[in-house]
């Protein structure tokens, strides 16, 4: 836990330092007309952030006990199995659109991680994106990213909906 604690605190320290630099650049002092400069509040916030994270780092090094590891044994696998496919899904959104990307993602996760029968995977991974497409894009008229292919893939569903209602 110590490594993770120090790591996150170092990140916050760097973030604070960056904001400190920026608030000094845009000016944190008193201006004649508008009063406190644009960097006024960020300056003190960033200062607090830097001091606070420095304290956390110092305290961690004073501790004898290193603590438990951040991720318990066998925990990293499932986490990456969530993070990586989700990120890949977002990468393919510009091509397939959000609903079709989600269709692929749900089917992949159910089949590969959940080891669920193919027909169930197909049913659920088609049912959910189609119903959410109808709710958002058609009923409430909130367009979600359709990518290059999204309109071709979900267009027929939309037309069918228009014909029925």
């Amino acid at each position: 836990m110590r490594k993770a604690n120090v790591g996150l605190a170092v990140f916050f320290l760097a973030l604070g330092a960056l904001c400190l630099y920026d608030s000094v650049r845009i000016g944190f002092r008193w201006l004649p007309v508008t009063g406190p400069g644009p960097g006024f509040l960020p300056f003190y916030l960033a200062l607090g952030c830097v001091v606070g994270s420095a304290l956390i780092i110092l305290r961690e090094f004073k501790k004898e006990d290193k603590g438990l590891p951040l991720i318990p044994e066998g925990g990293l696998g499932p986490i990456l199995w969530v993070l990586i496919p989700s990120t890949v899904m977002l990468m393919i959104v510009p091509i397939f659109g959000l609903h079709a990307a989600a269709l692929i993602y749900i089917a992949f996760y159910m089949k590969v991680v959940g080891k669920i029968e193919v027909y169930k995977c197909a049913l659920i991974s088609i049912l959910f994106p189609v119903s959410l497409y109808i709710i958002f894009d058609k009923v409430f008229l909130i367009p979600l990213p359709s990518g290059i292919l999204g309109d071709y893939l979900f267009g027929p569903v939309g037309k069918l909906y228009d014909v029925i209602f």
Binding site: V82, P85, S86, M89, L90, V93, P94, L98, A102, Y105, I106, Y109, M110, V113, G114, K115, I116, I124, F128, P129, L132, F136, I142, P143, L144, P145
Partner: peptide, 23 residues
């Protein structure tokens, strides 16, 4: 959970996008 999890992530992504329509 292997069925629920990806659907939750999907729904979260829709929610995040629809607030400002920004990828």
């Amino acid at each position: 959970f292997a069925i629920i999890m990806p659907i939750i992530v999907y729904v979260c992504a829709i929610g995040a996008y629809a607030v400002n329509n920004r990828m």
